[in-house]
């Protein structure tokens, strides 16, 4: 795994340098969206892989992050970074609140709890939309929306892509750092048995809440970045079904590996864009997408990331260490 981490950092560096230069205007935007959703996917993937907990509200939480980001952008003169951080933190707190019932739930029930949250948020987003510079608490004006400030180092679209990739990399490293330190060991123990974890002095409540908070943080950052990229958000992006779909793709991508989250985001944003670019009818693309999803769930236990590892392992002539 250490090896794949090093490769990851190298690949990220290559992407940061090359993607903004090589991609055209359309693809710069597609890759920016992909980076935003990769952050959220990483959040969902890691609580699933480390704790067996399923969040079907990840995209809805991105919406919360995006809302906070836009609200602050239009209400204050704070710099981009402050707004982004606030978006991450507020979403993180919401994630932790979500974790309180989660402490007592497992498996499907927990997943459904998060789905109910996603369903409720969908209704709020539709009825209230996202702040665009209007007055009042909800900040929605009906005319031309006010501008969204971008970071100093990301004024143009290509520079913003570079910035987003770096934030994504930082998010991934944050997870990796946790995995290697005390929280990672605590999570592993909790996953085996909470009783055992408590017996060995692990604060189960703290670490579970922490994990959800971390996952929410990544979703919030992703939502804030997306808002900065588009300048405004629309409720259609954050429907409950999108949250379910993102989690399905997390399973397909492979939840246990960092490149699984990247694969998830690529499937979620790059694949539909490619099909659209090739002129495939949107409805037919949906059929293809659904079929591919079913196929991957049936055939790939560790997702695409697992298959990549298997392939690399076969190349090296031995099985890779893919233990959790």
């Amino acid at each position: 795994m250490r090896m794949s981490g090093v490769i990851g950092v190298i690949l990220l560096a290559v992407a940061v340098v090359l993607l903004p230069v090589l991609a055209g205007g359309q693809w710069v935007r597609i890759f920016t969206s992909t980076a935003c959703f990769a952050l959220a996917a990483m959040g969902a993937a890691f609580i699933y892989a480390r704790l067996g907990m399923v969040s079907l509200a990840q995209v809805a939480l991105m919406g919360v992050g995006g809302w906070v980001f836009l609200r602050l952008n239009h209400a204050t003169a704070l710099p981009f970074e402050a707004n982004l951080l606030a978006a991450g933190l507020v979403t993180s707190v919401l994630g932790m609140l979500l974790a309180l019932p989660a402490l007592r739930m497992r498996g499907l029930y927990l997943a459904l709890m998060t789905l109910m949250v996603a369903g409720a948020l969908e209704i709020v987003f539709t009825a209230r939309q996202f702040p665009n510079g209007g007055t009042g608490f909800w900040g929605v004006a009906t005319s031309f929306s006010a501008t969204v400030r971008r970071p100093l180092l990301g004024q143009s679209d290509p520079a913003y892509l570079r910035y987003s990739l770096l934030v994504m990399g930082a998010g991934f490293l944050l997870i990796e750092a946790h995995r290697r330190a005390a929280p990672g060991r605590a999570w592993a123990l909790i996953r085996r048995s909470e009783a055992a974890a408590i017996a060995s002095g692990v604060n189960v409540t703290l670490y579970k809440t922490w994990a959800f908070g971390l996952s929410g943080l990544l979703a919030g950052l992703g939502g804030g970045l997306l808002a900065g990229s588009l300048g405004l958000l629309d409720a259609a992006t954050f429907r409950a079904s999108e949250s379910v779909l993102l989690f399905a793709l997390v399973v397909v991508g492979g939840a246990r590996f960092w490149f699984g989250a990247v694969a998830t985001a690529v499937l979620y944003r790059v694949a539909p864009a490619l099909l659209n670019n090739w002129g495939v009818d949107a409805d037919l693309a949906l059929i293809l997408f659904g079929a591919a999803l079913l196929h991957a769930v049936i055939t790939a236990p560790d997702g695409i990331a697992g298959q990549i590892l298997g392939f690399v392992g076969a190349l090296r002539g031995r099985m890779p260490g893919v233990r959790p």
Binding site: L108, S241, V244, A248, L286, I287, F289, G290, A291, V297
Partner: peptide
């Protein structure tokens, strides 16, 4: 995962 995967079938039918 079984529940979430059935969304794939739903998308196929919707498409």
């Amino acid at each position: 995962v079984k529940a979430v995967a059935s969304l794939g079938f739903a998308l196929m039918l919707l498409g």
